[in-house]
Write a protein that binds this DNA or RNA. Structure first.
Lengths: 230, 230
DNA sequence: CCCCTTTTTCGTCTTCACGACGATAACTCT
DNA sequence: AGAGTTATCGTCGTGAAGACGAAAAAGGGG
């Protein structure tokens, strides 16, 4: 029955974002094979026969980052299936968005030629393979929007973090400065956003900061809106 | 190249929502063929060989509703591809969410046995075919959330509508009462949400109401949050 | 024709959240 | 010790939202 209909190949592609050195970076691989050989692309691969979509995304994530299930965030971004998007045939890709803390481990490509973190501000338009420019743009916009009404900024942070680190995440992802005092009030005042870890930093410059862990909340009420609006 | 990987069938399924008689309703079809014969299911069908995903969704929508591209809203909801979700084989479906005004035209199923509007409150769990229960739940939640920060409630309304009609949409979708005075202030005070049509209603009970059209805004600033929170 | 009901629309009042800052605390560095 | 840096607490004004009161503008029934 299903075989009487046009066959598709199904892939997952990953928009893996992190914050490194004050910049929002995306994990890109350099393709070693045609099509789009030597071009940058999002990591991804074909879905296996008996594999669920989130499992395929997790598998590709661990394969490409070389990390055993990092404590980040993974969610489906959307599907892209325009007829001409892959010259090899009809391929529908399910894109996933991953938010990870800055990885001390260098990225090792398993089957790709090479992989690296690239600041999204330095990814020129129409430079990535396939329709990955659009997928990347959608992923970045999704991440920016989700910081407003979810505690997902903590996914960019290590297990314990300071308010200033969390603020740096917001400022980096949104590319906008935030007032440290108002941000501190907002973060510590929103129930469930963060939970005090009890300890404090040592050895840094300035007054030591309290350490926090991610709180139990799954949504921010009220949301933290980006500075813009009309 | 792509043919060396497991072949999939790709479908689109539609969560078509409308507001009828004070209830949020979904368009369901009764399946005429196996599997899940005689069970309710979301409308949908296979993506054609040279067809883009949004085109397939629009095609199914017009086929199932019998309407020439109604002035509603259509957006991608997400993809579902668990290995066992379709007993016929490996099928990945891309779900779309459609919001339509109440259609005076009765729904005519073209290839399905029958189709009808069903209040979502009367769709029991684990009653729809495939994994359509979950897809429906995701669609309803997406619609509820989107009313908060977009003007999409107008997609449920005819081209010209009153503030009370728009409020009825919110109250129905959210299943919560809203204060008419505060709602009126919010709707008319949010720039770009609605634009006055210049005319007013006649013949109804009570004071005549001004008619409005959908405004140019694509997002609500500030959002209209549902009554809940903590 | 007058009152009552219904519905829309305009105000008021209080509370709360946020943006813009000032001020203080608690460290490091020289 | 003093200067510099960073974290944290407070204050003040503005604007939005919830809870209402009240007037405006129609229809219906005696």
């Amino acid at each position: 029955m299903a075989e009487s209909y046009p066959p598709f190949a199904v892939t997952v592609d990953l928009v893996v974002l992190t914050v490194r050195a004050g910049e929002l970076c995306v994990l890109l691989i350099r393709r070693g094979v045609a099509p789009y050989r030597d071009r940058w692309a999002l990591p991804g691969g074909f879905v296996l026969v008996d594999e669920d979509l989130p499992d395929a995304a997790r598998r590709e994530l661990t394969e490409e980052t070389g990390l055993p299930e990092p404590a980040g965030h993974l969610e489906q971004l959307g599907s892209y299936g325009a007829p001409g998007r892959d010259p090899r045939g009809r391929v529908v890709t399910v894109a996933y968005l991953a938010l990870l803390p800055d990885l001390p481990v260098p990225v090792a490509g398993t089957d790709a030629a090479s992989a690296d973190w690239v600041p999204v501000s330095r990814v020129p338009d129409a430079r990535l393979a396939f329709d990955h420019d659009r997928i990347l743009a959608d992923g970045v916009e999704r991440a920016r929007a989700k910081l407003e009404y979810t505690p997902l900024a903590t996914a960019f942070c290590p297990p314990e973090f300071t308010v200033a680190q969390l603020r740096a995440v917001y400022e980096t992802v949104w590319a906008a400065p935030l007032d440290p005092r108002n941000f501190h009030r907002k973060v510590t005042g929103t129930p469930g956003f963060v939970a005090p870890a009890g300890r404090a930093t040592e050895g840094d410059r300035g007054r030591p900061a309290q350490l926090f862990r991610r709180g139990p909340a799954e949504a921010l009420y009220p949301p933290m809106l980006r500075p813009q609006a009309r």
